[in-house]
Design a protein around this nucleic acid. Structure first.
Lengths: 218, 218
DNA sequence: CCAAAAGTGTTCCGTCTACACCCATGG
DNA sequence: CCATGGGTGTAGACGGAACACTTTTGG
């Protein structure tokens, strides 16, 4: 292979995954204690190095597959982080990706295998390196996009109640929403539809289940 | 230095700068013909490789200083681009940055030195590699943020007329705006203020000049 | 005196917000 | 029968959109 750029330096490039889930009415993040040096034992996002035969996004998908057992999920780039000393070990340039998954789909024994836990975002411990900043930026993106893009559904099962959906909105925006106004707004969305099915889990009366009816565009 | 990650691959990392300016009532981009292989002669964004002693943002600033002679400017990360074959030469992971500058501040002889030109965004030629995609993403960011963040002022001199400001909005959003409504909205912004000065360049009657009165927050 | 750009208000309509009560059911 | 969560409508406030004419002055 012809070498064009050989006079320049090369760097390790990693991806860090900010995996959001929704459980017990809260927005949660999958984090674990680092199992390698440096920073062994510190709370950290799950990440991995970019391989030679994969794009950044491929690397994020591979990492997320290892971590969650899931192949398809909502994935969005949060940004590149390249401060010289951002990693306490060596210089690593990292690209953060934000993923939204349905906690129920998560393969539970992978959780133990990787030593990760779901932690509520309002209750996060200090995180390794600049991971805190990545998380904050990811939440900012979610907040800004939640009304423009059908994000929230990725955090729920394919059948969901309006109450669940409202809880997702409230968790992401960190504010409470009026139930009637919320339901009115949701009725105007053309990509969700009511089914005949009823969820009896959470109430005696039962709540109508809704689903997406179109493939969501980027 | 202790080596922690040596089993992993390393990559060239570059920054590519999407430099917007506003001139002749149009939004323009600073692009030039590549002066190196591969792709010599193709239209391209201006970019550079990331050095060992600089962060990604430092690299973008350095590159922009070389290109424009300007030290301070609005700069925002557009995203990381890492497809395996995105660069026709070798694998290079690139982080795109979007800069907004006032064309009048631009050091004109640097333009010739670097062989770059201001080209209206509606009139761009095909660009090298994935640069087109970077530009589109940058424009999307500007459009989404123009009403949330005081962006537009970076494309104008420190004293500007409301007509100029409106032209910037129209150029970024690619749609025309009602003059009265626009001026009403601008009057509500607390960070711009009318001065006693009058611009006689563009009209016989003269137009009031405005300026920013607060340091802009991120 | 006229061409060219600056400047200025009002009305209408649609959207968002606030707000409280009845319903269905399992235990 | 009652506790629990599900479900519904209306009125007022507010903000955005449509719309046309007068002013100033250099040439």
């Amino acid at each position: 292979m012809t070498r064009y750029y050989s006079e320049h330096s090369q760097y390790f490039v990693s991806v860090d995954c900010i995996v959001f889930g929704f459980d017990e009415g809260k927005l949660k993040l999958l984090i674990g204690k680092r199992q390698m040096d440096p920073g062994r034992g510190e709370w950290s996002l799950y990440g991995g190095f970019v391989g030679e035969n994969e794009s950044l996004e491929d690397a994020a998908h591979r990492t997320l597959l290892q971590l969650t057992g899931l192949k398809e999920m909502y994935l969005k780039q949060v940004g590149a982080f390249g401060a010289i000393d951002r990693d306490p070990g060596e210089r690593v340039i990292s690209v953060a990706y934000c993923a939204l998954i349905n906690v129920k789909d998560y393969n539970r024994h992978l959780q133990e295998e990787h030593g990760v836990e779901w932690v509520a975002i309002n209750d996060l411990p200090p995180l390794y390196g600049d991971h805190q900043v990545m998380v904050e930026k990811a939440i900012g993106i979610l907040r800004r996009r939640i009304d423009t893009e059908p994000l929230s559904f990725n955090l729920l099962p394919s059948l969901f109640t309006l109450t669940q959906l409202q809880q997702v909105y409230e968790a992401i925006l960190d504010e409470s929403i009026d139930k009637r106004n919320f339901r009115k707004r949701m009725k105007l969305l053309d990509f969700i539809e009511k089914t005949e099915l009823v969820d009896k889990q959470s109430s005696k009366r039962g709540a109508a289940l809704y689903r997406l009816n179109k493939k969501v565009k980027e």
